[in-house]
Design a protein around this nucleic acid. Structure first.
Lengths: 188, 188
DNA sequence: TCCTTAATTGACTGATCAATCAAGAACAGG
DNA sequence: CCTGTTCTTGATTGATCAGTCAATTAAGGA
């Protein structure tokens, strides 16, 4: 079976399996064995490619943040400011970012950032970038872009948090609408 | 040493120790031994009084939510609607609820609610009560109390989340101000 | 005094898991 | 065909911990 070039495929499978297992379990207490099994390989191989369980988590987290960043970039093609802000909000609640398992994994990685400095650094990069994107778009629209950006960021995080904890299935559209309504009020 | 009546004292000490250890560790991965040590007793005694580690966590979580509820009740003495909304917001960011360790413990209990149905139930009760309090206060002030209550709740959670993850020390006053500014916009 | 009951712990058990290692299997290049 | 490299796993180790239990201490009541 050793077709050369397995490494990137195996790594991707492990990252994908990690997000699903963490999301499904709702906890970082998933064993390397579980992850490896879902990814279709032995636990030893997972260690072979990533070195440690922490590294597996970190790469999974990086993947989530990168995916999010990519969807923001895709939506940021528009020219006028309002569209750009709306684009960021839309990306936040796009279905691939707002699936229950993804958000559940996301929450657990937030908790991980309390203990793991690498995770914290990743998260800070993501926050800074989101903030910067929002600021650029907001500056022409309001006299207090900093405050609106801060509020928008917190609101998005809060809506995420509540969505994953509510009993109802996650509804990206109404979540998006809530944030957009705030935006209209703030810019009125 | 068996002075009768140790139970409530021991339990309180364990709950307090749990919040501090979880907050300090930034994770629910604290051992019963750690908690018991901080509380000044043996791990066996902790099991004797609470039965299981899960029960220890659950009681600690209940304590945090109750403390929060108490501070809301204290602030809710006012008569006019606006003061009542402000009171809830103020209580949310009062120092005893907004200490780094408390918020850190809070975040981890949120994550716990993803797996533990008892924890989820506790959280739902808290959300429902907060929402109900906000609704009563908001109804005379706006034509869309549901939406404002939902946004306020999410915003508070989001601000909490960000406060514990930022490198800077947590600042309850500016957090409170951010939420109050939203309130003014929403009611304008 | 003696007996019951609460308080308390040290020692132990059983289970779980991350990480390691040595060895096997299959391909590519010479 | 060898030979080295990549891929892969079963078996094992070493450590950690939740939870149990039997035994000890001391108070309070009869």
């Amino acid at each position: 079976m050793p077709k050369i070039g397995a490494e990137p495929i195996r790594k991707a499978a492990l990252i994908n399996a990690t997000i699903h297992e963490v999301g499904k379990a709702g906890s970082l207490d998933v064993t390397v064995a579980q992850i490896a099994k879902r990814a279709g390989m032995s636990p030893a191989l997972a260690h072979h490619y990533f070195g440690s369980k922490d590294q597996i988590f970190l790469h999974a987290m990086r993947f989530i943040l990168k995916t999010f960043g990519d969807s923001v970039r895709d939506e940021l093609k528009s020219n006028d400011s309002r569209s750009r802000v709306v684009a960021i909000i839309t990306a936040s609640f796009a279905s691939q970012n707002f699936q229950r398992e993804t958000v559940s994994a996301w929450l657990n990685f937030y908790a991980l950032a309390l203990t793991n400095t690498d995770a914290a650094r990743l998260l800070r990069v993501y926050h800074r970038r989101l903030r910067s994107n929002l600021l650029v778009a907001l500056r022409p629209m309001t006299s207090r872009p900093d405050q609106v950006a801060e509020t928008l960021g917190a609101l998005i995080d809060g809506v995420y948090l509540r969505s994953v904890l509510s009993a109802r299935p996650t509804d990206g559209d109404s979540a998006r609408q809530l944030v957009l309504d705030y935006l209209d009020e703030a810019l009125a």
